[in-house]
Simulated scan of single mutants.
Amino acid sequence: MGQGKKSFLHHECWEVVKDCSRFKIIPTGPAVVLNETPLHDSPLDSPMEMESPLPHPPRPIGRKTAKAKRGSTSNNECVQFLEQIAKNTALRIERDLKREEADMSRQEAFAIQQQHA
């Protein structure tokens, strides 16, 4: 390997992917002329028609957009999950307070019974 030159060793791989649309070479330069005469003489083969690009398939969704979409649903799920935890905690606190009140009233009733006995 010389200065800045690299040899390509994966020819089998190229044979597989060379026909994929991603690797097609689309000419973007000026029309080829021979002796200052355009090669396409007939009006049907005008350079404008030759240079018009092939219609591209719609682009696949990007990673950032996909993550943002995924994040918005998971964010929503997180919010619902946290709200459920808050509700459960509030219910548990309320239940514990009622138990404590019931225990206190039982203890008071027991103390009153002990005093009268």
Score class of each variant (00 low, 15 high):
residue 41 D to G: 15
residue 39 L to Y: 03
residue 30 P to L: 06
residue 50 M to N: 01
residue 73 T to M: 07
residue 63 R to N: 12
residue 72 S to R: 14
residue 42 S to I: 11
residue 15 E to N: 11
residue 59 R to F: 06
residue 44 L to Q: 14
residue 30 P to M: 01
residue 40 H to Q: 04
residue 93 I to C: 03
residue 22 R to I: 12
residue 99 R to M: 12
residue 39 L to R: 01
residue 95 R to K: 11
residue 8 F to I: 10
residue 104 M to E: 09
residue 87 K to R: 11
residue 99 R to Q: 12
residue 107 Q to K: 12
residue 36 E to N: 15
residue 29 G to R: 06
residue 2 G to K: 10
residue 18 K to I: 03
residue 36 E to I: 06
residue 57 P to Q: 09
residue 115 Q to D: 00
residue 41 D to V: 09
residue 60 P to S: 14
residue 50 M to E: 15
residue 60 P to H: 09
residue 10 H to F: 14
residue 76 N to A: 12
residue 82 L to V: 01
residue 15 E to Q: 10
residue 86 A to Y: 04
residue 41 D to C: 10
residue 20 C to E: 12
residue 41 D to K: 15
residue 9 L to D: 15
residue 104 M to Q: 14
residue 93 I to Q: 07
residue 50 M to C: 08
residue 44 L to K: 13
residue 9 L to R: 14
residue 70 R to M: 04
residue 86 A to K: 00
residue 115 Q to C: 05
residue 76 N to H: 13
residue 46 S to T: 08
residue 35 N to W: 11
residue 38 P to R: 03
residue 53 P to Y: 00
residue 12 E to F: 03
residue 41 D to I: 08
residue 57 P to Y: 00
residue 77 E to W: 07
residue 48 M to C: 11
residue 81 F to D: 03
residue 19 D to T: 12
residue 99 R to P: 03
residue 29 G to D: 04
residue 24 K to L: 03
residue 26 I to C: 01
residue 30 P to D: 05
residue 96 D to H: 03
residue 20 C to V: 02
residue 111 A to T: 00
